[in-house]
Amino acid sequence: MRGRRLFFFTALLFLAVVVLIFAMATGAVDIPFKTVLAVLLNRLFSIPAANTDPTMEVIIAQIRLPRVILGFFVGASLAVAGVAFQGLLQNPLADPYTIGVSSGAALGATASMLLLPAAGIGSFYAVPLFGFAGALIALFTVYQLGRVGGRLPVVTVLLAGVVISSFFSALISLSMIAAGEQMRNIFFWLVGGLGFKGWPYVTLISLCFSPGLALLLYKSRDLNLILLGEEEALSLGVEVERTKKIVLVAASLVTAGAVSISGMIGFVGLIVPHAVRILIGPDHRFLFPASVLGGGIFLTITDTFARSVLAPVELPVGIVTAFLGAPFFIFLLRRHREKYRF
């Protein structure tokens, strides 16, 4: 297993680099691959680039790079949150989408756009902040609704998630109708997509992602133990209830960061964790970092696909995640179904 893990980690890392470079070389404006590489090397390692067009440089460094990195972060966030939710709820169908946390974050973000329409810095940070609050409210509600006698059965949690998702989506639609002039902004944000997002958004998502991931890594061993039985975890010295709360809040924070920037992108949080688990096993100490890579790679590929397949028209990336993700997932599942246990 150790050798297998090392192999897949190296492979994922390598793939991530390749995919990121490939994504950087794809865009609305045709830029020679050589130029892209030269600018990247220049920015990353201060290797002097031989007289490149400054405009091309701006496009690569200020438009493409933040977008590609943002996509990577969003994918990583959703995958990591998916791993956390699936693990903690011991539910193979849990992801930020299915348990309603995404729509909670979306509702929070919508509310912030309605209540704080000014385009100031305050409202810039308010979107993820409100999103986080919305995600927590959704999570709390699902937790309460789905709990049966101190347990969280798969079925009731999913039902509660579906109910909360539809309810919150209805609230979002309602607020859009009430929004008047703000409707356009909300609409643009809801359909998602990573266009028009520069470096400040990269900062913004990393403010949610980094502490969230750190908390999850910090609790990953405890999470492993909880998975094999809460009572024994307690007797091994794990603070089970506190760990659960920390993991849920951290996963919600990470989800809120992704959703408040890219809108609702489904599927990533559901399938990437399973795919990664099939490849490297169930240990969360490795599962979280591998999901960062896996989710990042997956969304970078889908976003590149979304903006190039019908160029110059961009497809909503959520459509592409489902379109590419479903067959890939079925492929993985069929190959491993003999051995794969959740």
Partner: peptide, 25 residues
């Protein structure tokens, strides 16, 4: 397409409104 716009090296972009995030970008 932001890339197209930037590639044109404009000194002024005039619009009625822009999608969320694009004016900042």
């Amino acid at each position: 397409s932001v890339e197209h716009i930037v590639a044109l090296q404009p000194d002024l972009v005039a619009a009625n409104w822009l999608p969320e995030g694009m004016d900042r970008q």
